[in-house]
């Protein structure tokens, strides 16, 4: 059977990169005696797949990975066992059974994520919140997206599903996953531009709140958090 595990990542653990978080959980599964399934062969691997990787420096309340179990287990007890072998900065939130259908696991179903981004050291001028409310009233939001090979200008507005000023921070829901992917850094950069600021001097703290699957259609999206997908 398959299960999905949700965890939080905060504090100094934000400096642990995606691959090392995977290694961490592989060892944690053993410490917590989770009866996880392995691939065959001379060097067997745990059957484990992570949803959208989180960038180094970003904290999160909604990280997910799926595992395959060799036997049915009491998931509540398993969560407790896992939390006994975690470190400060990683908490297991829940564990839910998921469909055995391959299409329903891991990376492939991720469609959107919520973030809270905060500018550090008062990088935004007094009263920026008022001006920021007009950010989404622009017909298009252009930004230069840099990849290893090229630089191209893209309109990111269609990938921003929600945008809201919350106190000193910006809440946003953006396209995430293997089809379309927008990082909060880019949105904040666009906002900085919109506010007429020098982006080089700005630095943000990004926090992921939740990751969603789309259970609706491409036209009419309906987002459900990954632990609610049945």
């Amino acid at each position: 059977m398959k299960a999905r595990i949700k965890f939080r990542k905060y504090g100094c653990m934000k400096f642990i990169g995606h691959l090392d978080v995977m290694r961490f959980f592989q060892k944690a599964m053993r410490r917590a005696d989770i009866p996880i399934a392995f691939t065959g062969g001379f060097s067997p691997h745990m059957i484990m797949s992570f949803a959208n990787p989180l960038g180094v420096g970003v904290t999160s309340d909604g990280e997910y990975f799926d595992i395959e179990l060799v036997e049915e287990i009491d998931m509540k007890a398993a969560v407790e066992r896992m939390n006994q072998v975690m470190v400060e900065g990683i908490d297991v939130v829940n564990m839910v059974p998921i469909s055995d259908d391959k299409k329903q696991t891991g990376m492939s179903i991720v469609a959107a994520a919520d973030y809270l981004s905060t500018v550090k050291y008062n990088g935004f001028p007094e009263g920026w919140q008022d001006k920021a409310k007009d950010f989404m009233n622009q017909p298009e939001i252009h930004i230069v997206k840099k990849t290893k090979k090229s630089e191209k200008e893209v309109d990111i507005k269609p990938m921003i599903y929600k945008f809201e000023v919350r106190g000193d921070s910006v809440y946003m829901q953006v396209a995430t996953g293997s089809v379309e992917n927008l990082k909060p850094e880019l949105v904040m950069q666009a906002l900085g531009q919109f506010l007429g600021l020098d982006n080089e001097s700005l630095s943000f703290a990004h926090h992921r709140l939740e990751v969603y699957a789309n259970v609706g259609s491409d036209e009419e999206k309906q987002f459900v958090s990954l632990d609610q997908v049945s």
């Binding site: 653990m13 072998v85 900065g89 630095s203």
Partner: peptide, 19 residues
């Protein structure tokens, strides 16, 4: 600081907190 840790290679070398 966060700024230094984001700048250096493998910040995990300096944060402790291991199992």
């Amino acid at each position: 600081s966060d700024e230094i840790l984001m700048k250096v290679d493998k910040p995990a070398r300096y944060i402790g907190n291991e199992v």
